[in-house]
Design a protein around this nucleic acid. Structure first.
Length: 244
DNA sequence: AAGGATGTTGCCTG
DNA sequence: TCAGGCAACATCCT
């Protein structure tokens, strides 16, 4: 489910319900949280930041993270009890297998909106500045750093590195300025391609290295756990260059 | 059909 | 003491 673009799709679906400004009739669920707090409260709006789905109330916000296995149903439900579910006068939203937490006060004090790769305030220059502060970092690590590329996940990481022809172990400091800029710009470009393909149900079809055995040039794809986080990197040793 | 994976947190250990 | 490692969470696809 996750990665930023999928959360944007969730937000778009939810906004179509036109429940912003409406009062929640009933909140149900197994979440370890004071869920009754939201009952009879008016929803101001829905937002996203990276992989976070945000339900905003007057003085607080509910943050939902779908993690690896999360799912949701709109105007329907699964057989299992939702982790958290909302009933409106004419609509229903249910979330399963997610992490839910309250954020108190002003969201702008919690979130750096310029970090969200799907957001309006995201910008190349700002992101390059952040990257330059971590010259020793590997590109496979920074692409998963939510403070820099909020919303990027392992699919985006691998596909962007293939597009930009950079091997995942490369260090930031070793990338020529032009290449660094390309890396940053392509992350946003790929994220929006991801959004478009996900909506069309054709995302997997467009994978060039992620979960693939061969790249589009018919070279063998290397699969390796790399970086601080030991997440899997898929890359082509022939098409992608190692910088260091 | 067992194994792996689009993610993150927090506990345990050396 | 604290950073790093790793389990936990929980579901669906291959």
């Amino acid at each position: 489910m996750p990665e930023g673009p999928s959360i944007v799709i969730l937000k778009e679906f939810v906004k179509e319900l036109n429940v912003e400004g409406q009062t929640i009739r009933k909140v149900t669920g197994t979440a370890d949280l004071d869920i009754k707090r939201m009952q009879n409260q008016k929803i101001i709006t829905f937002k996203t930041w990276g992989k976070h789905f945000l339900i905003c109330f007057k003085d607080f916000t509910l943050r939902i993270h779908l993690m690896m296995f999360g799912s949701y149903r709109i105007n329907s439900h699964k057989e299992s009890k939702p982790k958290i579910g909302f009933q409106f006068e004419n609509a229903e939203i249910n979330f399963y297998t997610c992490a839910a937490n309250y954020i108190e006060g002003n969201l702008n004090e919690v979130y750096d909106w310029t970090a969200d790769i799907m957001g309006k305030k995201w910008n190349t220059k700002n992101t390059i500045e952040k990257l330059k502060k971590e010259p020793q970092a590997m590109v496979c690590d920074v692409l998963l750093d939510q403070q820099i590329f909020a919303g990027a996940g392992n699919i985006i990481k691998n596909e962007v590195l293939y597009r930009t022809k950079i091997q995942p172990q490369s260090n930031i400091r070793a990338l020529p300025a032009k290449k660094l800029k390309e890396l940053v710009e392509e992350t946003k470009n790929y994220a929006f391609d991801f959004l478009k393909w996900k909506k069309a149900n054709t995302l997997k079809k467009h994978w060039e290295v992620y979960s693939k055995k061969v790249c589009p040039q018919h070279h063998k794809v290397t699969k390796q756990e790399l970086g601080k986080n030991k997440r899997v990197s898929y890359y082509c040793e022939k098409c992608q260059k190692q910088y260091n």
